[in-house]
Amino acid sequence: MSLAESHAGQGRVPDGIPVRGRPRSEAVERSIVEGVMRLLDEGVPLSELSIERVARTAGVGKATIYRRWSGKEDLFLDVLRAAEPPEPALPGTSMRDDLVILLEAARQRGLLNRQSAILHNVFAQMKSSPRIWEAYHANVVAPRRRTLTDVLRRGRDNGELRADVDIDLAGDLLFGPMLVRTVMHPDASLPEDLAQSIVDTVLEGLHPAAK
């Protein structure tokens, strides 16, 4: 399944996906993001996705793109945000529930990566572009990590975790198994109950001792 097909339409960004910029420019920005998706679907390597080529494909001038994105890295980050499932809303009812939602989102991203050959290739190519890879980590991966840390810290403060738990280590224990299955072993099973199983297994060892 191609990147565009996975979003219900060749080269189309799904409705509701936010793109940066002034509200009155949303249609223009959407056409630019769709233009990048279209080029990726056609097999254009990431290294050849110049602003000039994107502008021609989207039917806009280069200045139109530069008014909205500072460069190729920022534009590509918004394309990836449009390609991936949106970040989940956390109910905050309990640490366990929030953790399950975060891990389920990671499972869904893993499934999408498997289903979309073009998205898989884009991530592989992105690793060869240090600037884009660093920007992706700073603007996408790091905020996800902060959200996880906030959930765990709140759980520790509420007594859902032992007071001596290392928050960073706990985050690695929780997300490690999901990353192994989605990244290191792309053929590994990703069952629907995987997020719940990982969270409950890890928390069993991190809960405060019963008094």
Rank of each mutant, 00 (worst) to 15 (best):
L111V: 14
R144S: 10
A138Y: 01
F123R: 01
A138T: 05
N139M: 13
R146F: 10
A124G: 10
L111F: 04
K127D: 15
Q108L: 14
P143S: 06
Q115L: 10
R153K: 14
S129C: 10
L111C: 05
M126H: 04
R156K: 15
N121Q: 15
A142S: 09
V141R: 05
D157M: 13
Y136D: 03
R154Y: 02
S116W: 02
H120R: 07
Q108K: 11
R131H: 08
P130M: 04
S116F: 03
R146N: 09
E160P: 13
N121M: 10
H137V: 09
R153F: 13
R156N: 10
A142W: 02
R109S: 02
Q125A: 15
R107Q: 12
S116G: 10
L119S: 00
V140A: 05
V141S: 09
E160G: 10
G159E: 06
L148F: 02
A135C: 08
L119W: 00
Y136E: 03
L152N: 11
G159T: 08
S128C: 07
P143V: 05
G110F: 01
N158A: 15
P143M: 09
W133M: 09
P143G: 08
L111Y: 01
P143C: 08
S129G: 01
I132L: 15
G110Q: 02
W133H: 14
T149M: 14
S129A: 10
V151A: 07
Y136W: 12
D150V: 09
A135K: 09
V151S: 09
R153P: 13
F123V: 05
R156P: 15
Q125L: 12
M126G: 04
Y136A: 06
V151T: 11
P130A: 03
R107L: 11
D157C: 11
K127H: 13
R153V: 14
S116C: 13
N113E: 03
V122R: 00
S128E: 15
Q115F: 02
R107G: 13
I118E: 05
Q125H: 06
R144I: 00
N113P: 00
L152Y: 05
E160Q: 13
N158K: 06
R156M: 15
V141Q: 03
Q125T: 11
E160N: 07
L119D: 01
T147G: 14
N158R: 12
Q125F: 05
G159H: 09
T147Y: 02
G110K: 01
D157I: 05
R114A: 05
A142V: 04
E160C: 11
A135Y: 07
Q115T: 06
T149S: 14
L148P: 12
R144T: 01
K127E: 15
T149G: 13
L119H: 00
L148Q: 06
S116L: 08
R144K: 11
W133Y: 09
R109C: 00
R131V: 11
Q115M: 08
G110D: 01
H137F: 03
Q125E: 15
A117M: 06
A138I: 01
L148D: 08
P143T: 03
P143Y: 04
V141H: 03
S116R: 04
A124Y: 00
A135G: 14
K127W: 12
L148Y: 02
